[in-house]
Design a protein around this nucleic acid. Structure first.
Lengths: 197, 197
DNA sequence: TCCGTTGTGGTACACATGTATCATGAAAAC
DNA sequence: GTTTTCATGATACATGTGTACCACAACGGA
């Protein structure tokens, strides 16, 4: 095999370009030509690595997801390990605080919007999203069950509520409706109510 | 002036076509030619009524917003007028239960996604969205203040939390992650906690 | 040394899109 | 009845898009 080339590094370089372009100008700006120009390579190359445009978008989505998980793990490791702290770190990792997480949240919104739309016609056609959200809810549920919870708190219902709270907070921080600090404070306030002092 | 024509009716006919097309196939399907074909008119006509494509999308957004408000008013009028009931009706009106509200939620997501993206670069460039969310939060806040609230409930913080909760619930119902019943039950559960029995 | 596989560039093609232009019908105003 | 103004139609145009095709460079194996 000729020409030793780190395939994964190349792919990451290209998906990074996709992210930067999407950040300014929206998903519509992520065209083959623009991506090639942004990454400083030829159109043929991005075509070579992803085959089709959908392949490019899929790879980008996957790449962003991996980085989000890494970021999440870092946040969780810095806690004292209590359910309250771990859950707070977990939820706050979905709030766009720096440029990195901003990009992640934005890519999440941009990429999944189309998915939601096309999934409307044929239900059960897009199982990836459902599984992801279920996993998120499951994680929240596990931490809630570790307790100690305040009296009368139902972990199942609260897990659903917390999971549903995240997209809205992310959106509002992104578009400037509220600051990241307010979003985090809202999370903390609610967690304080759920957990026993 | 010749040829009596109900301009508003025509515009509504066209924006309805935009909605139907967006429903299946996403916003990308809402092209001049497709809209014209869906509405059974010529391309020139839709061009005549909206000028540019952005004008068409803006008009659609406005149209969807008006219908959502009408629907909301209907829901609120059916309540007993208590703060708890009005707030419940208000929040549930954002949950996509039938095809009408599904379309509204989906158009909301599809149309505002681009707005969020372009607003990232220049903050304060998209005041419409912020004002809308602020108004929603203001409405929630007013109802919360009417009480009676449970002990230790801060209306300001709870208004923020409730406002942020809506987009997520809407999304999850749309993509099939949860049913509309679960979403409404989650809202009720939380409101029961906030309001004094 | 030569060869074949792999990586990369340049470019052409078919197509869809937004918009502009030209043309026509239709009805009110005079 | 003529004219003017509004509403609508058909179509042309420039552009940007995804993708396919052809050519070549580079490097590992024979």
């Amino acid at each position: 095999m000729p020409k030793k080339v780190d395939h994964d590094a190349r792919r990451r370089q290209l998906t990074d370009a996709v992210c930067r372009l999407t950040l300014r100008g929206g998903l519509g700006s992520a065209t083959f030509r623009q991506v090639a120009a942004e990454a400083g390579v030829s159109v043929r190359l991005v075509q070579y690595y992803f085959g089709s445009k959908q392949g490019m978008l899929d790879a980008t989505q996957e790449h962003v997801g991996e980085r989000s998980i890494e970021r999440l793990m870092n946040w969780v490791e810095k806690t004292d390990g209590s359910a309250r702290a771990v859950l707070g770190a977990f939820l706050k990792s979905f709030t766009p605080v720096d440029s990195e997480s901003k990009m992640a949240a934005l890519m999440y919104i941009a990429l999944y919007t189309e998915g939601v739309v096309v999934a409307m016609g044929q239900p059960e056609a897009n199982p990836t999203r459902k599984n992801e959200v279920d996993m998120m809810r499951q994680t929240v549920l596990e931490q809630l069950r570790r307790g100690p919870l305040a009296a009368g708190v139902d972990p199942e219902v609260e897990a659903t509520l917390l999971t549903a709270l995240m997209p809205g907070l992310g959106q509002y921080v992104l578009d400037g409706t509220m600051t990241a600090e307010v979003a985090c404070a809202t999370i903390d306030h609610h967690l304080d109510r759920l957990f026993a002092a």
